[in-house]
Amino acid sequence: MRKLLAEFFGTYWLVFGGCGSALFAAKVLNGPAGEVVNLGIGFVGVAFAFGLTVLTMAYAVGHISGGHFNPAVSFGLWASGRFETKNLVPYIIAQCVGATTAAGSLYLILIGKTNFAIDNTQAGAFASNGFGAFSPGGYSMTSVFITEFILTMFFLIVIIGATDKVANGKFAGIAIGLALTLIHLISIPISNTSVNPARSLSQALFTQGEPLSQVWLFWAAPILGAITGGLIYKYLLQNKKQ
């Protein structure tokens, strides 16, 4: 139960911090008369917010659960032989519940904003992921699938390599957090960046419409990419003499 609670809180923090930065702080803020009073954090700020959520929770609760906070990561670690099959479904449930609870918290805050409404005809509504007309940059389904697959594959290689018993584990959280930052810097314009099925599902559940119908891709591509990354590390990169 402690492990599942760690995954719940870790995934909650990832979605609340990452998606919250996109919803609350990424854009230019205007005063009552329409004047610009502050500049938003933009893509770079959102990318760092996602990276910081993983970095902070990796050190806070990673020693309890392993710090997955992402169904794709759980699948990738399972494929690499670093995670038991019996724990796969409970972890994924805890991650999805944590992500959805965080999305609900974001929604409760946003409904207190004047004239707030989720426009699910727009790309990136409620920090949702999408392809085609629902990609921030108008990228096709194929482009988004390839992007999510490759980035999640490398994310797993970084995670498994950084936490290898022969690596310097004290810095693993930093490497993983910065890897997620880099991933967002690359792909926010392409897919609004998922590499995390729980994060995509949680936002889509509140957005509804086309973003919810497209969420299958943000399960399929990251999980397949993660499994590939896990297998690559296990059979091609791992020192067999360990």
Rank of each mutant, 00 (worst) to 15 (best):
V144C: 15
L88K: 00
R82S: 15
F126R: 09
F206L: 10
G209Y: 03
L14V: 09
F75Y: 12
F134C: 03
F116V: 13
K3P: 06
R82G: 02
I174F: 11
F9N: 15
I150F: 14
V166Q: 14
S191H: 06
Y139A: 11
I157Q: 05
F69S: 02
G169F: 08
K240T: 13
S140E: 13
D119H: 15
V166C: 05
F116E: 11
L4S: 04
S202R: 06
G45P: 06
G112H: 11
L236N: 06
G34H: 10
N196W: 01
W13R: 04
L14C: 08
K113N: 09
I159M: 13
A221W: 05
L55S: 10
Q122E: 15
Y107R: 14
I190D: 00
S140Q: 12
Y91K: 10
T114G: 04
L29H: 07
Q242K: 14
Y235S: 11
Q203D: 04
F126H: 13
Q203H: 00
G138W: 01
G169W: 06
T207I: 07
F8P: 09
V37I: 15
N70Q: 00
G230Y: 00
P90I: 11
G31C: 01
Q238E: 15
T100Q: 07
I159H: 13
T147V: 07
Y235T: 13
Q242D: 11
F24R: 08
F126M: 07
A226P: 02
I111K: 14
T163V: 03
F48W: 05
I118K: 10
G66R: 04
E35H: 09
V158L: 15
L217N: 10
F24E: 07
P211S: 00
G18C: 00
L217I: 00
L182S: 11
F9G: 12
A167Y: 04
K27S: 06
F69H: 05
G124R: 11
L231H: 14
L4F: 13
F116M: 05
A117I: 10
A179L: 02
G132V: 08
L185P: 00
V89H: 01
G51L: 00
F154P: 08
T152S: 10
S143I: 13
Q122V: 07
G137V: 14
L182Q: 10
N38G: 06
K86P: 01
L185S: 12
A123I: 02
I159K: 12
P71V: 06
F9A: 15
G173I: 01
I232D: 00
I111A: 09
E84L: 01
Y139F: 14
I160L: 10
L77N: 07
I190Q: 06
V144P: 08
E84V: 03
K240H: 15
V195P: 02
G225D: 04
S21T: 10
Y139N: 12
T56D: 04
F126N: 09
L23G: 03
A204Y: 00
F69P: 02
V73K: 01
G229P: 08
T147C: 15
G40W: 08
N196F: 00
I232T: 15
G42W: 09
E35R: 01
A204N: 08
G67L: 10
G138D: 12
L205V: 07
I109R: 00
G137W: 04
P136W: 03
I174M: 15
A179F: 04
H68V: 13
T181R: 03
K234M: 10
G51D: 12
N192H: 12
F50Y: 03
S74D: 09
I93E: 05
G62S: 07
F9W: 15
M153K: 09
A133K: 11
K241Q: 03
A72E: 09
